[in-house]
């Protein structure tokens, strides 16, 4: 499968934080959920992909071209957390500007999305609500027919209805199997609905990068009491967490676990469980 984005051994050092050999691939026609707690390195990775941060080691390829040597931005749509056009501008102004920035800016599509999302054309960004502003950022990222969307927290601040509308647009976007999305979000339920791949980063390191199917079919969460927990071999689970009344165990191969310990039900893994157990859990 052809990759639209390749990140290989990305390293970037700051005084108090470092990205350590971050690697993952995003194939064509796929959506990758990029998860991790605040400060884990998601935004820094995205900034490196977009050449916002310089002086990093490793290689980043978009459309098979090294981003350090080629400007590949014309086919990328971007939504960044709290970074956008100055707030004295209106959606109408943005259309005027972007029509000169992108050769393939689609004015009709832009105004169609504005209409679909009920966004005012002549109001300044300053006067829009947080949710409306976010929608405008998404619409702006989509209106030049990009092949790759890079979205940092695109659904934060949106109500459930708007989130569902946006997710539908993302689904439509990858329908022709030529376009892909890298989507960083704290709202893990959104990712469970649309992501094909999950890349989980913590403390500057990629802990896992797998297909959602792999994660959901193989991984699971076992809940048991203290006595049962004591009988379980520590090599058969990745992490455990002690709750008020029970133990929660993250297992990498739930079928094997079921057979070995004769357990009937193992809870389906959610991304929230995965994050909490990996970050907070013990071994």
């Amino acid at each position: 499968m052809e990759n639209i984005l390749e990140v290989n051994n990305l390293c970037k050092r700051y005084r108090d934080f470092a990205l350590k050999n971050v690697s993952f691939n995003l194939p064509k026609g796929m959506i990758m959920g990029f998860i991790g707690k605040n400060g884990a390195g998601k935004t820094t990775t995205i900034k490196a992909i977009l050449s916002i941060v310089n002086n990093y080691d490793g290689e980043i390829k978009i459309f098979n071209q090294d981003v350090k040597k080629n400007d590949v931005k014309k086919d990328i749509g971007v939504v960044l957390d709290d970074m956008f056009f100055p707030e004295v501008l209106t959606p109408k102004d943005i259309n005027k500007i972007m029509s000169s920035v992108y050769d393939n800016w689609d004015e009709v599509l832009f105004f169609k999305y504005l209409n679909d999302f009920e966004l005012p054309i002549n109001k300044t960004i300053k006067s829009l609500s947080k949710g409306m502003r976010k929608k405008l950022e998404i619409v702006t990222a989509l209106a030049h027919h990009p092949k790759l969307l890079i979205l940092d927290e695109p659904t934060s601040g949106l109500d459930p209805i708007a989130r569902s509308e946006v997710i539908d647009i993302f689904r439509d976007f990858i329908q022709d199997e030529e376009c892909s999305i890298l989507l960083s979000s704290h709202i893990t339920t959104d990712l469970e609905h649309i992501a094909d791949y999950i890349t989980f980063i913590d403390n500057g390191e990629v802990l896992l990068s797998k297909t959602c199917d792999e994660l959901m079919n193989l991984y699971g969460v076992v809940k048991c009491g203290r006595d049962e927990f004591k009988k379980i071999d520590s090599s058969d689970y990745l992490k455990y967490r002690k709750n008020k009344y029970e133990f929660e165990l993250l297992v990498e191969d739930k079928n094997m676990f079921k057979k070995k310990y004769n357990i009937d039900t193992i809870d389906k893994l959610t991304l929230e469980d995965l994050m909490v157990l990996v970050i907070k859990g013990g071994k």
């Binding site: 956008f84 100055p86 960004i125």
Partner: peptide
């Protein structure tokens, strides 16, 4: 509005 950062993401 951190335009100088957003601008880098444009061609």
């Amino acid at each position: 509005n951190k335009w100088e950062v957003y601008a880098i993401t444009l061609p």
